[in-house]
Design a protein around this nucleic acid. Structure first.
Lengths: 229, 229
DNA sequence: ATCATACTATGATTCAAATCACAGTAATAA
DNA sequence: TTATTACTGTGATTTGAATCATAGTATGAT
């Protein structure tokens, strides 16, 4: 199974940074350890508190990782897309997932069992280094998010999230950077710790100032990136 | 050098979780790779933006890791104490420090050069696993901090920081948990994203409600822990 | 193309933390 | 012990985001 060319090309190994140091034969061995699954928009992939038995790598699509609070609020911690992984915590510690994962669009994932992945780790120590590198990057993003929420004005936080989205989901067009928003207004609010209404208002302001242009609800054109600093 | 008993007992290796899987002889080998240094209260150990050439392990004392913003605010990200390490990012990536480190009290540190530590890592892969484990814990703390700042009331954030400090710096006394505060009111404010004044007021409230008792400026007695949930 | 549903915008009001201002207190060094 | 400095507490005021309320718009399914 999984040996036809189409499958290979669709499978995570090729596009995953943590496997980037492996050669063709090594990748092929890994393919046999992988289980795939596809989720529809809004489907829950993991629920906070569940035990996770796999390392999950995103092949295609986007998911959000979030925590729900007792009083009905939601904090989005990550948006994971192609090549990102989660569930790594269960590899070294036997702990419950500390956040839920929900598909933001049709998303296909690859799963590698805990044991299998631990074997891979000891066989190819470089994978471990790559994971540490990725965890370090994630830590740095979280640290910046905390700095933003703790010290920056609401306007600055809106600027930052627009620039982040521009980098991750934007394409350069002649009029500016066109962002394919991964989140609704409410999602953005839950990502940067504001309310839906405040995000709406701030974006309207930016549009009035001719810095951005909202195209429907799912796209934003950044006309003047330099005014967002 | 470093072979007398007093030195051994004072050196980081024994109290550092990341070396916990090594035996006595292995630890002795590591001792020879270590350089020690002592910092006084308020001394800067690393400045944001500097290149770091060592993994730094705290032997004794406490430091704060923080970012300064352009408009003069400060966000404290971590309080590191005995057994904690930092500078691990420079081991896999050649990047500048993303935060400054300042001693909160007299603090002695142990340093292992980048190259030496990389050798250790390949010699004892378990150290790598321990580091990943520690990074995972750090990630979880950051994720919780973001959830707190994004979704919780100011009161809840004060409760949380008191409970955190009680766990890390508190001793059980008959009247309650006595916390040796690592930070001033302003420091606490910079840790949870509030102002000095708000922290003062909220602590005063808690004292009036007989939940805590402030003892000078550096100690707080938690009389009724259960009211902080 | 129409409809149903989910999402968005925006005005009015409330509220709580930031800010400003200054007095009071604790900690540290001489 | 006293003096000096740094830290803390608290009142008055401002400010800006949350909340409440409702109308408007976009999107996707049929």
């Amino acid at each position: 199974m999984h040996h036809c060319e189409t499958c290979k090309n669709n499978v995570c190994t090729k596009r995953v940074p943590i496997f980037s140091l492996l050669n063709h034969d090594e990748l092929n061995k890994i393919i046999n350890l992988i289980n795939r699954k596809v989720y529809k928009r809004n489907e829950i992939i993991i629920l906070e508190g569940q035990y996770l038995k796999n390392l999950v790598i995103i092949n295609n699509g986007k998911v959000k990782a979030f925590k729900n609070t007792i009083d009905g609020k939601q904090q989005i911690l990550y948006i994971f897309s192609s090549g990102d992984f989660f569930g790594e915590k269960s590899l070294f510690m036997n702990e419950k997932a500390s956040y839920s994962i929900e598909a933001l669009e049709e998303t296909s994932i690859c799963m590698i069992g805990k044991k299998d992945f631990q074997n891979l780790l000891s066989q190819y120590p470089n994978i471990g280094l790559k994971i540490m590198e990725e965890l370090s990057k994630r830590i740095e993003r979280l640290e910046n998010a905390i700095e933003n929420m703790g010290t920056k004005s609401v306007d600055a936080r809106i600027y930052d999230v627009l620039l982040e989205f521009a980098k991750s989901y934007g394409t350069q067009e002649k009029e500016g950077i066109l962002i394919d928003l991964p989140l609704s207004r409410e999602g953005i609010a839950n990502y940067i710790g504001l309310t839906r209404e405040t995000v709406s208002r701030k974006l309207s302001n930016l549009q009035e100032e001719n810095i951005i242009k909202m195209i429907g609800n799912k796209k934003i054109l950044i006309k003047d990136k330099h005014k967002l600093f």
